[in-house]
Design a protein around this nucleic acid. Structure first.
Length: 437
RNA sequence: GUGGGCGUAGCGUAGAGGUUAACGCGUCAGGUUGUGGCCCUGAAGAUCGAGGGUUCGAUCCCCUCCGUCCACCCCA
């Protein structure tokens, strides 16, 4: 469980740094996060979703059973640990099993069905970091539990579609596939293996491994040696059972009705075991990079039983907020820092700070963001800071004003002339002027 | 987990086996008496990612580690 500890020097040469694959979200990036989180709230409200928050960690079995213990996410990427007792826990690598666990634990089957839930939370996967791939990332996650209706499939796709549009993301497309139900899918897999069996020697190493572990992935190979064989392989979406085919068709009709551009991807395979029927991803059309997928999900009608609950259909998706923001910026969305204050107080109160602090408090009482300049810095320096703060007004209190009980109001953004105002009247006056701007 | 590129002040970059490592942005201070944005001047700020090796000498060459980026794998 515990690897030999490395020397401090090798981890931390001269100073601390954030652990590999993690990142600080600095103030200049916060406007993007703010925009995404606000849009998430807005779009989920428009679809009648309610928020749920599950713990950062769960019993490891929740994911081992839920996600599938042979999936890469569980087998290679999960942060598993023992706490000080005997409990084996795991940092959440994906939201769906955790939300389903909560559904069962709290008897949500007795709520009006289906239950529509969303969350935004940190996910952890031990993986080699790349642009858009982090060991800690944040996901917007939606789950609709308790309905087999294909219209619900289309609805969750519509949520993402609307969210991305709200955020100014352009040029994305939905890739839609169907994995059928377990029985027919298994029959299809057998046919696929029969097709590939005579050609095993010609396949890439990766694909030979896939043949045993996850044959569906054969169709997804990017290796040149595998390309020729792919074309002749039986396609899953062309082999669907009548029920799954009808479901698939209804989803498509609903997407068309909603004006969502999608393309059928007969090779779409997701890396989690629990999916059946509808699977989808949303990808940029003009970015061929590997980590381009910004949102993905699918139906998981069998998951609740795997977790020990009664048969309960469900569908959901996750969308990585870091990737959403990368895509926003690639679409040309630019967000500035914004003003940190409405009013910046320039003063020379080295002795008696009372009047300055009372003024600042009265401004804040009036709802104005007020920043007090640093004592001891020149008026010039403080005014430069006032300008940089983005404040609309500077209020100047020097020695003369201190004696007179007044302050000079300077309009930093407009043409209004400076005026001297009694300190008592300042807050209401500025509140009025800021409101007018 | 596999293969490869990169790592010089807070940020973006230049540089060369050999005296005090350069520039822009940013920061701070000034440009006379208490007034921002533009402009000008100056200052601070870099053990050249870390450790080890080769060499008379390394920031530059070699190795290891750390980080980052790209592809694969996987995924959001």
């Amino acid at each position: 469980m515990h690897p030999p500890s490395r020397t401090t020097a090798s981890i931390m040469p001269t100073r601390f740094q954030a652990p590999r694959g993690t990142q600080d979200v600095l103030p200049q990036m916060q406007p993007y996060w703010d925009a995404v989180l606000k849009a998430v709230e807005a779009v989920t409200a428009l679809h009648g979703f309610r928020r749920i928050d599950t713990p950062v960690f769960e019993y490891a079995e929740v994911f081992e059973k839920g996600s599938g213990d042979t999936t890469d996410v569980v087998e290679k990427e999960m942060y598993t640990f023992y706490d000080r007792g005997e409990e084996r826990l795991a940092l959440t690598p994906e939201a769906t099993p955790a939300v389903c666990r909560a559904y069962l634990e709290h008897g949500m089957a007795s709520w009006p069905q289906p239950v529509r839930l969303y969350t935004t939370k940190a996910m952890f996967r031990y993986d080699r970091p790349q642009r858009g791939r982090y060991r800690q990332h944040t996901q917007f996650d939606c789950e609709v539990i308790g309905s087999p209706d294909p219209l619900v499939d289309a609805e969750v796709i519509a949520i993402l579609w609307r969210l991305y549009a709200m955020l100014g993301i352009k040029n994305v497309v939905v890739r839609l596939g169907s994995l059928d139900d377990p029985g027919p899918r298994q029959a299809y897999i057998e046919r696929l293996k029969d097709y590939y069996l005579p050609h095993l020697a010609d396949l890439s190493d990766d694909s030979r491994r896939r043949f045993d572990r996850n044959p569906l992935r054969l169709l997804d190979s990017k290796d040149e040696r595998d390309q020729a064989l792919k074309d002749g392989a039986p396609k899953l979406v062309e082999s669907l059972s009548p029920e799954a085919a009808a479901h698939h068709k209804t989803v498509q009709e609903a997407l068309k009705a909603a004006g969502i551009s999608y393309e059928i991807d007969p090779l779409l395979v997701r890396g989690l075991d629990y999916y059946n029927r509808t699977v989808f991803e949303i990808v940029p059309v003009d970015d061929e990079r590997a980590q381009g997928t910004i949102g993905a999900g699918g139906r998981y009608d069998g998951l609740m039983e795997i977790l020990g609950g009664p048969p309960t259909p469900g569908i959901g998706f996750g969308s990585g907020i870091e990737r959403i923001i990368l895509e926003m910026r690639r679409s040309g969305v630019e967000m500035g820092p914004g003003a940190v204050a409405d009013v910046y107080i320039v003063h020379r109160a080295e002795g008696d700070a009372g009047p300055v602090f009372r003024l600042a408090a009265s401004l804040r009482d009036a709802g104005l963001a007020a920043v007090v300049g640093e004592s001891g810095r020149s008026f010039k320096a403080q005014l430069r800071a006032a300008d940089a703060s983005g404040a609309a007004f500077a209020v100047i209190i020097g020695d003369d004003e201190l004696v007179a009980g007044s302050a000079v109001v300077k309009d930093l953004r407009g043409e209004a002339p400076q005026q001297s105002v009694g300190i008592d009247a300042l807050a209401s006056l500025l509140a009025e002027r800021v409101r007018r701007n």
